[in-house]
């Protein structure tokens, strides 16, 4: 996967839950993509830059956006706020990932508009549960 992002599946495929993943750490990004796949969803774009992730989210309108907080281009918090302030993207589900694990970090993430916040290091199973919960509306 490259930072410019690429579609892993045909975005037009119906009946699949489409997820956009953005994290500047290649290893983590790949891990998140694997977890998304384990959750039965499809990764439509995978990027390492916040500004590119925002543009991709506006273009793709995925069912779920998984964002790292600390990214070049724009932070996950900024992307989150931008998506929430735009009526076209305000309804997207957003999961924030971050190495910031304090209650203040989590509160900031939720205040920016995230639906859920998962501090690193996270387990794959926990991430899979969160993806499923956010895409199906079932509790994690």
């Amino acid at each position: 996967m490259d930072d410019a992002g690429r579609a892993l599946v045909d975005p037009s495929t119906p009946d699949t839950v489409r997820v956009l993943v953005a994290d500047d750490e290649d290893d983590i990004r790949d891990l998140v993509c694997l977890a998304v796949a384990k959750a039965g969803c499809t990764v439509v774009r995978s990027l390492g830059d916040g500004a590119e992730a925002l543009a991709a989210a506006r273009a793709e309108l995925p069912d779920l956006v998984v964002l790292d907080v600390s990214m070049p281009g724009a932070t996950g918090l900024q992307v989150c706020e931008a998506l929430r302030s735009d009526p076209a993207t305000a309804g997207l589900r957003i999961l924030l990932l971050s190495a910031g694990a304090s209650s203040e970090d989590i509160a900031r993430g939720l205040a920016a508009g995230a639906d859920a916040y998962l501090p690193k290091p996270f387990g794959v199973a926990a991430l899979v549960r969160q993806v499923r919960a956010l895409t199906t509306g079932q509790p994690a």
Partner: peptide
Amino acid sequence: HELRTPLSSILGYLELVLD
């Protein structure tokens, strides 16, 4: 903070392998 990111990779991939 910086240690948490590589730890995420180590624990995440270990989990994938072990499970």
